[in-house]
Design a protein around this nucleic acid. Structure first.
Lengths: 217, 217
DNA sequence: AAATATTTTTAGGTATATCTAAAAATAATG
DNA sequence: CATTATTTTTAGATATACCTAAAAATATTT
């Protein structure tokens, strides 16, 4: 049985692997977990001993199948709980992350699977991110980052890759939610900002925003 | 903010206070928490310093209002989650305790209160135990322990004061559930066992069982 | 490739929540 | 009421998950 701390390391390492498509190094993990590199080293040794990942001094780590399975189970729980909070308890999408961070560590397969059924086996969470099923499988719909779009291109906003309160509140304020149709009106080469059009509005957003919005053409 | 361990101490001390209507001593707590008396002493000092309880060396402890409030909040969460598991996720009453022990430590007033509303503000949990409302208030229906009943007396089984798997499974096996009408047919002075009658059956139960069943006349 | 900068690890320390064993206080008994 | 038994506390360890500071390895510059 893994501690909450161990689970959080596994989860963050998984998400860094996905993001960078490579082995994950100590400092990156330290930043994500908000701890010191030395603490990360300690933990990596422990997780390596438990055979959840492969660790080579100074070379970074890579989850092995056992570790990946753990990561997917935590992500599954996190996203199911987020869905529950939004769909059943009337939370808004910017309020669910912190609570789901706690709920994802509850250990009961029966609970997870019954919750899944209760929610009618959702495939995406309130942020559009895919929910692994009980076998760890999930469908990856090819979404394109808004910053890849050209002037004149249109798409539907289907996923957000940033769970932070402030970011989601910013989206709320600008009426940007999953399902919103977006058209690129202008693209500034200097700072990669964009002017986009929704059915309500036209306004400029910074690269920091375009980087976190994913669309379907 | 309290640790999971601190919360468990507060919860158990509260339940011992209710049970014995007196100050709670170290060994009793140790037995409940399944730890050593020395560990309990350490924790009591810590909780006293946090002003959750009054502790006098060798004299036992008593929760003060702040501690009682914490206890009721944990009990509230525990019982709401049990209700959720049974009513919404199709758990049976003998399967909910362990999971609720984890869920009761989730920290989010919004979650607790929205869950409460989602369940239509239940006043008792699946074991018939009262659920405190958000202010810590709950109605105590005067229930009588089955072992106080005389031969010929009838009542309705409304509460069970033992959350253990084995005990609840025993009740299931004998078709004893909340709402069951019970009549006392025989009472054995030697071992305090009873023969009881339900609408289905007549059978003998030991004192260990009668002690944990609470009825309304 | 030598010097410098950065990253990572090691060594040693802290707080939490446990433990064992011994000492101290309280309770029960002859 | 003195002795014995029980309960509780103290003292000193242990494991987890952190930390700081220094050393070692790796990467980047000049």
């Amino acid at each position: 049985m893994l501690s909450k701390s161990e689970e959080n390391y596994i989860k963050e390492i998984y998400s860094l692997e996905q993001k960078f498509q490579s082995d994950v190094n100590t400092n990156l993990i330290a930043k994500k977990i908000e701890t010191k590199a030395s603490s990360v080293t300690d933990m990596l040794k422990k997780l390596a001993k438990k055979e959840l990942l492969t660790y080579q001094k100074y070379k970074g780590v890579k989850l092995n199948p056992k570790g990946t399975k753990v990561a997917l189970s935590i992500i599954r729980k996190h996203r199911l709980w987020e869905t529950f909070l939004v769909k059943k308890l009337n939370f808004s999408w910017d309020e669910v992350h912190e609570v789901a961070e706690q709920l994802e560590h509850i250990q009961s397969d029966k609970l997870t699977n019954h919750l899944d059924a209760f929610l009618d086996f959702p495939t995406v969470d309130p942020h559009g991110e895919p929910i692994p099923n009980k076998h760890g499988n999930f469908k990856t719909t090819k979404t394109i980052c808004l910053n890849q779009f050209q002037i004149g291109e249109k798409g539907v906003f289907v996923e957000v890759k940033n769970d932070s309160d402030t970011f989601l509140k910013f989206l709320n304020k600008n009426n940007l939610s999953i399902g919103t149709k977006i058209k690129v009106i202008e693209k500034e080469d200097f700072d990669n900002s964009m002017v986009i059009e929704t059915n309500k509005d036209q306004f400029r957003i910074s690269e920091n925003v375009t980087k976190n919005l994913y669309l379907k053409r």
